[in-house]
């Protein structure tokens, strides 16, 4: 994986900071979730941080990210302020969706997040629509439709790739393949190799979804190709979901093998940065300290924020 000539130290540290921010949020949720202070189902991204972060490193604010139900990593990687997400999780009116969305429905158009959806697959089409919008307005921009292997079962996956290819649209189909649809292994829900399907429509790329550098490098190639040609591309990132589909319990399916040391995208990146002398242990520690402070402040902000007025529902 480690092609250190192709990544600058600042880029490596940025990946590290973004992944750790997501990780710390997950850890906070694990701490408090059983107390029902967050009354919303959470689909945690523990173990999957590298995919969103490695891709979003190449996106600008105006580029669009269309997310499904597992939102936290993508949203934070794209730039959604942590405090807005936390306030949403805590059900407060200062949340990114004004408390009307919860964990699965995040909104931050300033950072190219025009909403996210909890019905698997449909958000793929919305990313294609954003790409159509860029094309019709002659704007430079890339849309990313991010989805899991479960979404590849749905007709909208095919329909969206077909239209994006026919119309020639600047969209990245980003498959964050955790190899599970709820508790169903991919072998039981998806017959063909999704990358082989995609290859009928567009160039495809591959990365190790537990390795931020691998995702960073493949995404760089895919997104430059999209920017250059204005046409779609597909990036397949197998990864591992550490938790159950929803909630704060660890995954314990017999056919899933997770080594939390070896499979951890953050530890992998740490070793890489240190090994390549792109960062010192002190620098990494400093990043963590800064993020811990940021998280504390965001938690405080969320908890101090008002709940929405119930009068809003009176007709």
């Amino acid at each position: 994986m480690m092609e250190n000539a192709q990544i600058k130290p600042a880029e490596g540290l940025d990946l590290y900071e973004r992944m750790l921010r997501i990780r710390l949020l997950s850890e906070h949720i694990l701490e408090v979730y059983r107390d029902d202070v967050m009354e919303t189902p959470v689909h945690l991204t523990l173990g999957q941080e590298a995919v969103a972060v490695g891709v979003c490193a190449h996106l600008r604010d105006e580029d669009v990210l269309s997310l499904g139900h597992r939102t936290h990593a993508g949203a934070l990687a794209k730039g959604l302020p942590l405090k807005s997400l936390l306030a949403e999780l805590y059900g407060r009116s200062t949340g990114c969706s004004g408390s009307y969305g919860g964990s699965m429905h995040v909104y931050d158009p300033e950072h190219g997040i025009h909403g996210s959806s909890a019905i698997v697959g449909g958000n793929i089409a919305l990313g294609v629509g954003a790409a159509l919008s860029f094309k019709l307005q002659s704007k430079e921009g890339v849309a990313v439709s991010m989805f899991g292997d479960g979404a590849c079962d749905a007709g909208v996956f095919w329909e969206s790739m077909n239209y994006a290819a026919l119309a020639g649209l600047p969209v990245l189909f980003l498959l964050e393949d955790n190899q599970l649809s709820n508790v169903m292994p991919k072998s039981k829900h998806l017959y063909p190799d999704p990358r082989a399907i995609a290859a009928n429509f567009m160039p495809t790329y591959f990365a190790d979804g537990t390795d931020a550098i691998s995702v960073f490098l493949s995404a760089k190639e895919a997104i430059s190709e999209i920017r250059r040609t204005g046409r779609p591309a597909f990036l397949h990132c197998p990864t591992k979901r550490w938790m159950k589909h929803q909630g704060v319990e660890e995954e314990d399916l017999p056919f899933i093998h997770i080594d939390r040391e070896k499979d951890c995208p953050i530890q992998k990146l740490e070793s890489f940065l240190l090994g390549a002398r792109m960062a010192t242990p002190g620098e990494l520690k400093q990043v963590r300290a800064h993020l811990e402070e940021e998280l504390e402040a965001a938690i405080h902000y969320a908890r101090q924020s008002p709940y929405p007025p119930v009068q809003a529902l009176e007709v």
Binding site: G115, A130, E159
Partner: peptide, 25 residues
């Protein structure tokens, strides 16, 4: 030039139209 045909994909195309509406069209 602003009249676009589509494949027989009403579901995805509704999502495409929505995505375009959310991003300025």
């Amino acid at each position: 030039e602003r009249v676009l045909g589509t494949p027989i994909s009403e579901n995805a195309m509704t999502g495409v139209a929505l995505g375009a509406a959310l991003t300025g069209m």
